[in-house]
Design a protein around this nucleic acid. Sequence first.
DNA 1: CATATTTGAGTAAACGTTTACGTTAAAAAG
DNA 2: CTTTTTAACGTAAACGTTTACTCAAATATG
Lengths: 334, 334
Amino acid sequence: MNPTIKDVAQKANVSIATVSRVLHNLGGYSDKTKQKVDQTIKELKYQPNAIARGLINKRTQTIGVLFPDVSSAFSSDLLHGIDEFVHDRNYSVMVCNTDQDGKRTLKYLQLLREKQVDGIIFSSEVLKKEYYDMLESMKVPVVLVSSQTDYANVPYVKVDDYQAAYDAVHYLITKGHRRIGMISGTKGDPIAGTPRVEGYRKALEAQGIAFDSRYLVYGDFSYESGCRAMEAILRRTPEVTAVFAASDQMAIGALSTVTKHGMNVPEDISIMGYDDLRLARMVNPPLTTVRQPLYDIGMIASEKLIGMIETGEPAKSQICTHSIVERESVRAIT
Amino acid sequence: MNPTIKDVAQKANVSIATVSRVLHNLGGYSDKTKQKVDQTIKELKYQPNAIARGLINKRTQTIGVLFPDVSSAFSSDLLHGIDEFVHDRNYSVMVCNTDQDGKRTLKYLQLLREKQVDGIIFSSEVLKKEYYDMLESMKVPVVLVSSQTDYANVPYVKVDDYQAAYDAVHYLITKGHRRIGMISGTKGDPIAGTPRVEGYRKALEAQGIAFDSRYLVYGDFSYESGCRAMEAILRRTPEVTAVFAASDQMAIGALSTVTKHGMNVPEDISIMGYDDLRLARMVNPPLTTVRQPLYDIGMIASEKLIGMIETGEPAKSQICTHSIVERESVRAIT
DNA sequence: CATATTTGAGTAAACGTTTACGTTAAAAAG
DNA sequence: CTTTTTAACGTAAACGTTTACTCAAATATG
């Protein structure tokens, strides 16, 4: 067995309370005893037991993070930011992969509750009433990432999807494109779906370009769906000069497909993505895209969460600024 | 406050012990009491407190996972496999991002010890004596992933790096290549560095091709280093017809660089990667590479770890089988 | 010098479980 | 109808901490 505080106390000839006090620098002991206690802690290689501490403090210094897909580049960038901030503040993170499946989400929330996490970051999934109720009854702070909700008191941090899409399409227009296709994400997705389509549409109309539903095709954010969508575009509306994809993965799928058809990006067709994942710069040509600062978003979300945990006060939602990063997949036409 | 087992006991007019017994199906109670207890558990929405449970059981049902870079595609695939298996067995995972920095690793091990994790997965980092000693003193099962060690009793699960590199280069040779360059990972890395170089060398020699040190250039596994390495190759030994990179990221960097120079892959030069990350199939052309089954490796490692935790018996190391996945970045020459 | 205050500790309860042990009443055995 | 066994619980200790409370000695105050 590992030594406990009791062992330290015995060996140092003091009470448990005293050891605890020097451990936390609470004062109430002489220099001499501090010396002795510190000494025997070293000797015994004593390590406090966070579980016991957690039981009494009702704080575990642990937060839970839920992702629909931990292994996606999107999630892992976020996780990186979260991990970074959180560890700095002496918390740990428990990850859960919900696999975008309701049953699992609920099961994991259950789990996190039993494990007494101090807070939860809920990412990239709509907060169904079911989840909200559960969260509510857990009485644990939550912050949403890349998601949003009507339940007023749960803060979110995300980019303005509408505006980001608007800006992307506007950018394409300023580059001289007028026949612009869009590969949307999952149809009806209230966060990353509809608002981005809406941004696309409005940006078009603002420049006097009529929205043409044939130019809009749906995917599900994945690479493969991007390939399929691009196939459809090439077949049905080959006159398009640029396409805006609602995720980098789809953009890259589109890019592959275009090349597979013997055409070149951006010479024959321009492609613009969304997210600015690491891979955006790795593909050929490097992808022009609208950047979500995922790492920062992870940090900000953690900051808010820990703030709520430690002050008990609700946090405000935050819209992070996106930006357009110009690389080489879009060309200006005249 | 959330209701405790005590609240349930009171409301159901039984003792705490009885509630605990029905909770765990231990028998020793009548059907009627079970009914009543189950009922009041529902009514109160009682949830057991895993912290309290952990304190007494000395089991937290949590494992710690250490990665040098959580956000890398490599880590996140692994993590996915780990998470999957582990949750199935009712464990949770705590992630730590060590940032390939000694101080942090030690700090995190410390943390995981305090949090009383039941086991640790240590990934992609050499197990220095320092770490080993710490781990040893924690008396907690550990398994290494994509790493290895002399400390006999710690099991690892990985691919045979030497053989995998050998096979890759052999494959290139069978495709008719004889002037084959290699972009190695970090020089001297005992796992993913030296053995792969050795495999390269031996595969060459086995076919009567002399090893030429000018054909070997070092990177650090990253995309950028792959770009730099390829620049060097193009400058110094442009006669090369194929290059084998020790990571997909470097391979993709090489690929970008080649294209940037106006040459084509695989027409002008063939490129082969290592890992088979998700992005390998997304780039253009899709990357021929040697596949490490990272998801499976994560699962296997978890299985071993949990086995050790639950039986107390040491696990055996395991070499997972790699394979060559042929895509389009290598061509046969005649 | 007597009293008040401060310092340096110790004692014990509490956190929410699990579980070894004890106890009672009913059922089975003789 | 005893005696033994069993079923159905209850009691209380234990896990490793934190912390409110207590208390004695030392120091300061008048």
